[in-house]
Design a protein around this nucleic acid. Sequence first.
RNA 1: GGGCAGGUACCAAAGUGGUCAACUGGGCCAGACUGUAAAUCUGGCGCCUUCGGGCUUCAUAGGUUCGAAUCCUAUCCUGCCCA
Length: 398
Amino acid sequence: MVTDPKKIDEILNRGTIVEVLPSREDFRQKLIRGEKLKFYIGFDATAPTLHLSHAKNFMLLEKFRQLGHEVIILFGDFTARIGDPSDRKAARQQLSAKEVEANVKKWKELVEPLMDFKNTSNPPKIMYNSHWLAKMDLEKLLGLASHFTVQQMLERDMFQKRLAEGKPIHLHEFLYPLMQGYDSVAMGVDVEMCGTDQIFNALAGRTLLKQLSGKDKFVVAVTLMENPKTGELMSKSRGTGVFLNAAPADFFGQIMAQPDEMIPILFVNNTFLSLAEIKSLTAGANPRDAKLRLAYEITKIIHGEKIAQASQQEFVKVFSQKEKPTEMPVIAIKSGEWPVIDLLSEAKLISSKSVGRRLIEQGGVKIDDQVVKDWQSQVLIKAGTIIQAGKRKFVKIK
RNA sequence: GGGCAGGUACCAAAGUGGUCAACUGGGCCAGACUGUAAAUCUGGCGCCUUCGGGCUUCAUAGGUUCGAAUCCUAUCCUGCCCA
């Protein structure tokens, strides 16, 4: 067990952890005393993607693992099917068992670089809440439900909001906190890590754990990394996040596409640089350079140093110097005269001819650096011709 | 079970017989500019087209009308109130 207060405080005060319930200081003392704690964080595999906000949770969990604590990644394969009322104002669509299974599989790959799964003495554990929740019968469920009142459930801020807005609250959504809460009981954990939007659920678990097992647990609430200007979260549905499953070059680019105000937040949560280093990198510097470094650091964690370097060079080349990418997809298309629209369509650069027409009218299509102005025109292509649609899509003719 | 109000494009949300492929904001795409795929500004965002226009879309299914997202009927779904 690592009990160095300096190291512990560094984790606790970095900025990722927003709140510790019931008491931050008690939690800290326990860590310093070197008591081995059982941590867990749950993720509902509602989509086959993960973004940087998820990533930082795994990264934080890894830090506690490195201190010597037991850490569990709980895949909410069962709860994913119900839909957590927290993160949306309306009920989430329910998923099939099959969909969830596919999502979990994909997630395992994505999490791989963030935690040391090869560690032999104290590897992170993976669990699935279907193991206990799928078996739960009505009698047991009623037992759990009896620990809470309707009023307590309604206290939930999200429910209050929906009530005020006249939006539906489905009965099964009341069961969600019970199920998430029961996870704590089933695993007998000491600490639950969760996003600040999950505090209610986590506390429901604390109640259950106390009443059913006579045991207390800490709730470590972590930031959701919202944009300080707009309040926007990294989101799957809105396409505002940086997704781990993107190809390295795109991943790098997605970080560069983040608004400037996200730079310090991403540095703190998604890199291992010290706060002092981050400060010196971001203070007064050209935000572009800071962001470039940020993108490099994060890409390095996910894809390794070499790929990170290559991605950075490529980014500067293509977007700063407006040159063509080193590598682009090569496709086999017959040489000769083509109506541009058909060519774009054949090259799969557009999803419909209407889209292609618009793109050309807006001046977004170039063939060998020549802007195509007329969507009805014919173009001559041969082997080696480069077609560009917008600033990111390039294709070379074989 | 009864009464009332609703269900609109990726999301939110206007529109309540023709001028509606449908206001606006978010998101997304393109262009300009730049310090970056940031910010800002401009334009665009159903499909097809011989560029005249055609076709499909406003919960679902029918109907009225020259003409419907808008009116009528039935069905499904939601909220509020009453029981």
